Amino acid sequence: MKRITILIADDETEIADLVALHLEKEDYDVIKVSNGEEAIQVLQTHSLDLAILDIMMPKRDGYEVTRQIRETQHTLPIIFLSAKTSDFDKITGLVIGADDYMTKPFNPMELVARVKAQLRRATQFNQTTTNNLILEAGGLTISPEKRTVTLYGHTIELTPKEFDILYLLASYPKKVFSAEGIFQKVWGEAYYESQNTVMVHIRTLRKKLGGDKDKFIKTVWGVGYTFNE
Rank of each mutant, 00 (worst) to 15 (best):
A137V: 11
G139N: 10
V176L: 02
S178W: 03
A170I: 00
K175W: 07
S143P: 00
R147F: 09
E145A: 06
T141H: 04
A137P: 05
R147Q: 11
S143I: 02
K161Y: 10
A170V: 05
E162I: 00
T148E: 14
L135H: 13
K174R: 14
S171C: 02
F177H: 03
R147V: 05
E145C: 10
L166D: 09
F163T: 00
H154F: 13
L169T: 00
K146W: 11
V176Y: 11
E136H: 15
L135R: 14
K146T: 13
E145L: 14
E145Q: 14
I165M: 02
E136F: 08
D164K: 02
V149M: 00
T148N: 05
I156Q: 02
E180D: 14
G139W: 10
F177R: 03
F163E: 02
L158T: 10
P173L: 07
T155E: 14
E157M: 05
Y152S: 10
L168V: 08
V149K: 09
G138Y: 13
L169C: 11
K161P: 05
E157Q: 14
G138L: 08
K146R: 14
K174Q: 14
D164W: 06
H154W: 12
T159S: 15
Y152H: 15
Y172F: 14
P173S: 06
F163K: 05
F177T: 04
E162V: 00
L140T: 12
L135T: 13
P144C: 08
S178G: 13
G153K: 00
P173E: 09
S143A: 11
L168Y: 08
A179E: 15
T148I: 03
A170Y: 01
T148P: 08
Y167S: 06
Y152T: 08
G139Q: 09
R147D: 08
S143L: 02
K174S: 12
T155A: 11
L168E: 02
R147P: 01
